[in-house]
Simulated scan of single mutants.
Amino acid sequence: MWFSIVMAALFAATINKQAYSTLLARPARQTGVFACALCLALLWQIKAGILEHLNIHILGLTAVTLIMGWRLACLSGLMASLLLISFTKMSFEQLPEFLTLSVFIPIYISYGLYLLCYKFLPRHFFVYIFVCAFLCAGAVGATKILISGGYYYLSGLYDLTTLKENYIFYAVIMWFPEAMLNGMSITLLITYRPHWVKTFYDQEYLNK
């Protein structure tokens, strides 16, 4: 029950009249939201895990957050989750937990790290790629596993030894592929389609 409340609160915080008005007025932006949702849904199907709930997969949410902004990234994540419910074995009852732990919290962390980078680091093309996209994505992927592992332990679903050996251990392994996929995606976009990336400002990152 409390997962539903947290999920609703996290998504409610993203609702903004200006953001959604702009979305409705710009078909290209709508296409971006749908495209990101589809890519996420397909990406999340590539997963591995031995025990129930302890699935490992690449999130891809740092790249989506940088491309769409945190508000629309949450919308894309919600749509991707609904696609999983419609076309996979994922049930509607699993939605609050999945959205909270695997979608909204990683997006909030991704955007928070981006803001810290924007404020405290030089606004340079390579800083954006290697820190905002590459390093932050890896940190978000590892943090998601640690947070989920902490929840499963505190809820009594698994003991600490089982979590260490079958889940938390993979935070180290998944760091690099998460960082690589997000970093490569952002690199390609800001090289060939920089106007598609909402958080990338040409006048600040290229005029250096």
Score class of each variant (00 low, 15 high):
54 L>W: 08
93 E>R: 12
97 E>N: 13
71 R>V: 00
96 P>T: 10
85 I>M: 10
108 Y>A: 14
76 S>F: 04
112 G>Y: 07
54 L>D: 02
110 S>R: 08
85 I>C: 12
102 S>Q: 11
59 L>M: 12
74 C>E: 02
38 L>T: 11
47 K>W: 01
40 L>N: 02
108 Y>R: 03
61 L>S: 00
41 A>T: 10
61 L>M: 10
66 L>Y: 02
133 A>K: 08
103 V>K: 06
105 I>P: 03
146 L>T: 04
106 P>M: 06
114 Y>T: 00
127 V>D: 04
116 L>R: 14
112 G>C: 11
111 Y>A: 04
31 T>C: 03
49 G>L: 04
102 S>K: 10
35 A>D: 09
112 G>M: 10
45 Q>D: 04
127 V>W: 04
120 F>R: 11
97 E>D: 06
123 R>T: 12
101 L>Q: 12
31 T>W: 08
68 M>N: 10
154 L>D: 07
57 H>A: 06
137 A>L: 02
33 V>S: 04
36 C>A: 15
52 E>V: 03
32 G>A: 03
90 M>I: 07
42 L>I: 12
55 N>T: 00
67 I>P: 01
46 I>P: 03
41 A>Y: 13
50 I>M: 08
103 V>I: 15
97 E>I: 14
149 G>N: 08
28 A>T: 15
142 A>K: 08
142 A>D: 06
151 Y>A: 01
114 Y>D: 09
62 T>N: 15
28 A>N: 02
88 T>I: 00
132 C>R: 12
126 F>R: 08
126 F>P: 05
34 F>D: 01
48 A>F: 15
99 L>C: 08
87 F>A: 10
44 W>S: 09
154 L>A: 10
97 E>Q: 11
111 Y>S: 05
61 L>P: 01
48 A>M: 10
93 E>M: 11
64 V>F: 07
123 R>Q: 15
47 K>H: 11
98 F>N: 14
122 P>N: 03
146 L>I: 13
44 W>N: 05
142 A>S: 15
112 G>K: 06
143 T>F: 12
35 A>S: 13
70 W>C: 09
78 L>R: 04
117 C>R: 12
47 K>S: 15
78 L>S: 00
131 V>A: 11
39 C>G: 13
85 I>S: 01
74 C>H: 04
84 L>F: 00
150 G>D: 12
72 L>K: 06
112 G>H: 04
125 F>S: 11
69 G>A: 07
130 F>E: 05
125 F>D: 11
110 S>A: 12
100 T>I: 08
69 G>L: 06
31 T>I: 06
32 G>R: 07
114 Y>E: 04
75 L>V: 07
151 Y>D: 03
58 I>E: 01
66 L>H: 10
125 F>Q: 15
116 L>E: 13
79 M>S: 02
148 S>N: 08
120 F>K: 07
83 L>R: 00
66 L>P: 11
135 L>C: 15
94 Q>K: 06
134 F>M: 10
149 G>Y: 02
68 M>P: 00
148 S>P: 01
100 T>R: 11
54 L>P: 03
83 L>S: 00
119 K>F: 09
130 F>G: 15
106 P>N: 03
123 R>S: 14
98 F>T: 14
142 A>Q: 11
132 C>A: 15
131 V>H: 05
139 A>K: 07
106 P>G: 08
113 L>H: 02
146 L>C: 09
50 I>Q: 02
